[in-house]
């Protein structure tokens, strides 16, 4: 009996350790599991803003009305907004950028974000957007339109409230909330996965396969991407960019900036609607029919912060679908946005 036990134990030990002879491939090496960022890959288009190298592109005539596209997250990227670049063929200057620490932009340690303290929203997000506008603006009379989705819509609203005289038009698509309590309510609602459901277990079960320290960005970004890739509650089905897709597929979730932003938010409890009551230009407020966490009542509540607005319900799409579904974009959203800009 004892002999068979020794054989059995040897088999287990051999099974566990026998794989240490193969070629090493690291989960935290740049480019293995998540794409390289602009500071790691010089072939990516980038600009330098406030000490950070940002992934950014611009399309269309330089001197025409500037449309700044602001992605969701915090920690998302602009790839799903690339359908917006067709506005360049209609005579507009379209700017896309990945925020600091997000997408293919340069990463920063978590402590850097947290060390910004009570001025964090200015230093991390608002000053960066100011820098983006300054970088692409060619004259004092050039009109500026902000187009933000989800977190990007919250950021666009906060920036417009802070600088109401510098913005000529505001398009917001499903800002989760503008007061911090509303932000938390929306996050809870949009991620209220069933305790026994596949989605929640997919999010938690992976923690025994991969673990990453606070600033092991590649590991944390990869895991965040896996968790964020599917969310049936908000009605997203994956981006369809048609011919607007770039030649490469490279999307990254900025896990560190995302985690740091929520921690800062809990501390600061920012009010993204501050000052927006001084912006009297019409705001185009968009929400979708397929986002179960964003019913009409929520759209009415959140949009009530804007003194002058037009509310538009995007039928048949989800949280990002008004921008990331090429058919809907071409037939509905782009004409609506052009009509809005022309009405200003």
């Amino acid at each position: 009996m004892e002999k068979s036990f020794i054989i059995y134990l040897s088999f287990i030990v051999f099974s566990v350790f026998s794989f240490s002879c193969s070629r090493e491939r690291y989960i935290d090496a740049p480019g293995n599991l998540v794409p390289k960022t602009v500071d790691q890959d010089s072939t990516l288009s980038s600009i330098s803003i406030n000490g950070a190298l940002l992934h950014s592109e611009a399309f269309g005539p330089e001197d025409s009305t500037l449309i700044i596209c602001i992605h969701g997250g915090p920690g998302g990227d602009y790839r799903y907004m690339l359908n917006c670049k067709t506005l360049a063929t209609k005579g507009y200057r379209v700017v896309l950028y990945d925020q600091r620490g997000a997408g293919l932009s340069q990463r920063f340690p978590k402590n850097w974000y947290l060390s910004q303290g009570n001025d964090a929203m200015n230093k991390i997000f608002y000053d960066e957007l100011k820098g983006i506008i300054a970088h692409y603006k060619t004259s004092a009379t050039q009109k500026i339109i902000l187009l933000g989705q989800s977190w990007g819509a919250m950021l666009a609203t906060a920036y417009t409230g802070k600088y109401p005289n510098e913005i000529d038009g505001l398009i917001v698509a499903e800002p989760g909330g503008l007061k911090w309590d509303d932000v938390i309510d929306y996050i809870s609602e949009s991620r209220s996965f069933k305790l026994w459901g596949e989605t929640l277990n997919d999010a938690t079960y992976i923690d025994q396969f991969m673990t990453g320290k606070e600033d092991q960005h590649e590991i944390l970004d990869y895991k965040a991407g896996l968790i964020g890739s599917v969310n049936a509650i908000v009605g997203d089905v994956g981006a369809d960019l048609g011919n607007n897709a770039p030649s490469y597929v490279a999307s990254r979730s900025g896990a560190v900036v995302n985690a740091a932003s929520y921690e800062l938010g809990q501390d600061i409890k920012p009010d993204f609607s501050a000052g927006i009551d001084n912006f009297f230009t019409k705001t185009l407020f968009i929400y979708s029919s397929n986002n179960k966490a964003y019913p009409e009542s929520w759209a009415e509540k959140i949009s009530s912060a804007y003194p002058n607005k037009e509310i538009f319900k995007a039928q048949g799409v989800g949280h990002s679908g008004m921008l990331d579904q090429v058919d809907f974009w071409t037939t509905t959203m782009e004409p609506k946005i052009i009509s809005y800009i022309q009405s200003l």
């Binding site: 690291y26 025994q208 673990t211 999307s251 990254r252």
Partner: peptide, 23 residues
């Protein structure tokens, strides 16, 4: 294929070591 089409087309499949995690 969904991941390669939507998230990252150059992702590297295969065995990864040294250890990928520990709790």
């Amino acid at each position: 294929e969904w991941y390669k089409k939507n998230i990252y087309d150059n992702v590297q499949d295969g065995w990864y070591e040294p250890a990928t995690g520990g709790n």
